[in-house]
């Protein structure tokens, strides 16, 4: 049995990715497959997890996947809020979409003998689809680096599952991503020894029934919805006159009324952009989170 865990955000097609891979294996790849989402109560932008199981025998196990053989991450900004390595088996595979080279020592946390592949397909998706949706690209990347499912099977499953008007563009994207991934070298094949990244899964045998823990993507009773954000509002203090129109419109109550200047509570701001749209002085700009963490935020927001 091979178990794959997919990480992405609501709206990025994570659940569809898990399904395309499963369908390709089950209908065109001669295997048994099972795919399922783990939905939270969240919406667009929230971390979403989905799973695919592949096997030569019928699959009866219906518990969640705790020790995946492979983890696919569709959005590198998730690394800051989600432990994507949780339970990853030694000798497993990590496939990451992103361009950043240093993810706070991600390489040092990898379980023993992890094959780590990193590729950047968001710009490719933007170019071909016009939107940063990378699910078909990442399914293809996984097919290229693992050979678990024949490439032709993936293409047929994409055709079956996507609405007809999206098929042609996505097949072009998938084709390009697949061929780029074939040339991909492992970023690192860790030898282990650094820490115990999958220790969370190890102590779990023979759990008493009252200790069961569902695999929650976010602890939603105390949801820090700021982790859902892929764009951040940045206020230009030179333009803002504290009129508080943004405060009136913010659906999350994330605008703070300060002594000197209005500010944003980034713990809860989901990055919906309503404040930027409603600001009468265009003092708020939406900036990609991925760029902000590289210290580019103010320049990109045009603030001098």
């Amino acid at each position: 049995m091979l178990q794959i865990r997919w990480h992405g955000r609501g709206g990025q097609g994570v659940v569809t990715a898990a399904r395309i891979f499963g369908r390709a294996a089950a209908i065109y790849g001669g295997k048994y497959a099972q795919s399922f989402p783990y939905f939270g109560t969240e919406r667009r932008g929230a971390p979403v997890t989905a799973f695919t199981r592949l096997s030569e025998q019928p699959i009866r196990d219906r518990s969640q996947v705790y020790e995946p053989d492979c983890v696919v991450v569709l959005d590198e900004t998730l690394l800051e809020s989600v432990d994507v390595l949780q339970g990853l088996r030694p000798g497993g595979i990590l496939v990451l979409n992103g361009s950043r080279t240093n993810h706070q020592g991600l390489k040092f946390k990898l379980p023993e003998n992890t094959a780590f592949y990193q590729i950047e397909v968001t710009s490719l998706a933007q170019e071909i689809l016009g939107v940063p949706i990378v699910n078909t690209a990442m399914v293809s990347v996984l097919a290229a680096v693992t050979s678990w499912v024949p490439w032709e099977a993936i293409k047929k499953a994409i055709q079956d599952i996507l609405p007809s008007h999206l098929v042609e563009k996505n097949l072009r994207l998938a084709e390009e991503a697949f061929h780029r991934a074939l040339a991909l070298r492992q970023v690192a094949s860790s030898q282990g020894g650094e820490g115990e990244p999958n220790s969370k899964s190890k102590g779990n045998l023979h759990l008493p029934a009252d200790n069961l823990q569902p695999n929650l993507p976010t602890p939603h009773l105390v949801a820090r919805t700021g982790s859902w954000r892929i764009q951040r509002p940045v206020i230009d203090p030179w333009k803002c006159n504290d009129c508080l129109i943004c405060w009136l419109f913010c659906p999350e109550g994330s605008i703070r009324r300060g002594e000197s200047c209005t500010s944003i509570d980034l713990t809860y701001c989901k990055g919906c952009g309503i404040c930027a749209r409603e600001c009468p002085r265009q003092a708020i700009h939406m900036v990609d989170e991925a760029l902000i963490s590289q210290g580019e935020g103010e320049r990109l927001a045009g603030i001098s």
């Binding site: 518990s63 779990n204 045998l205 759990l207 029934a209 069961l212 823990q213 569902p214 695999n215």
Partner: peptide, 19 residues
Amino acid sequence: GFVAGLGGQDIRKENIEGI
């Protein structure tokens, strides 16, 4: 009797083995 898996709580193989 064992009550488990309320409100989507995952029931794992280990739990059933424990039963």
